[in-house]
Amino acid sequence: MKGSTPHLANWQNNMIASAQAKGHKPILEDLCQASSGLDERISAYKNNYQQTLINWLSYAHPMVYKLVGEKYFIQLANDYLNSHVLNDQNFKHYGALFSNHLSRILVNRNALKEIPFISDLAKADWLLHQSYYAKNRAPFNIQAFSKLSPEQQSSATLSLAKDFFLIDSHWPLLDLWEFHREVKPIEQVTKSEEKLHFVIVRQVFRPILVKIDSLERSFLQAVIDRIRLRSLSEDIAHLPAKWIEIGWISDYMVR
């Protein structure tokens, strides 16, 4: 390869592959000028790739990090790196599937069998993070809504605030979150027979985790499914006003 005109594509392909540790090292060596410690120099790019992403995963998953400790977290993060190539412009989007990954490997890892809630905890970590950076809410335009005809109002659908996320889990995520924040100790993490429902919302700049009941969960599903106000069942018909007041519902659409 030396002495011929390099193609930019060939160079870029091999540099990226080497950084992602999936490269054909000899090819990159052929493309580079000979210099002392070429292997170590190429490894510097690989190390930067790994270190930056591991640091990011730990930053975005503080509860999981605290739960398993630094050493084991690095192992888990390395596993994730090996199966998930970075392909997003912004590396801060990397880790969206970390929770799914943990859920998949849960059954094969003895260390994780003792903490079966780790995957749901990772999901909560990630969504708390997303909520922190989410777009600000515009207040629900009550005035405009009140000017709609009764027919239009009843056919309207609602939208959730951008900082609002839902998690269903068999685990007491609220207790785990409070334990992480050192609000209260946790004696035992018990799996619930029924699914528990939680939402993550931003309250005065800080995302919080809140437990909701099954009625509220039904209403939430109706909002997600874009059910018209007139089609809401009677037992949840009072919730729109409450959720608009606390800001969880931020908009409406007349269909």
Partner: peptide, 10 residues
């Protein structure tokens, strides 16, 4: 390159 990225400057 071709959608694969590194959080580094090459």
């Amino acid at each position: 390159f071709e959608g694969k990225r590194t959080p580094d400057l090459l």
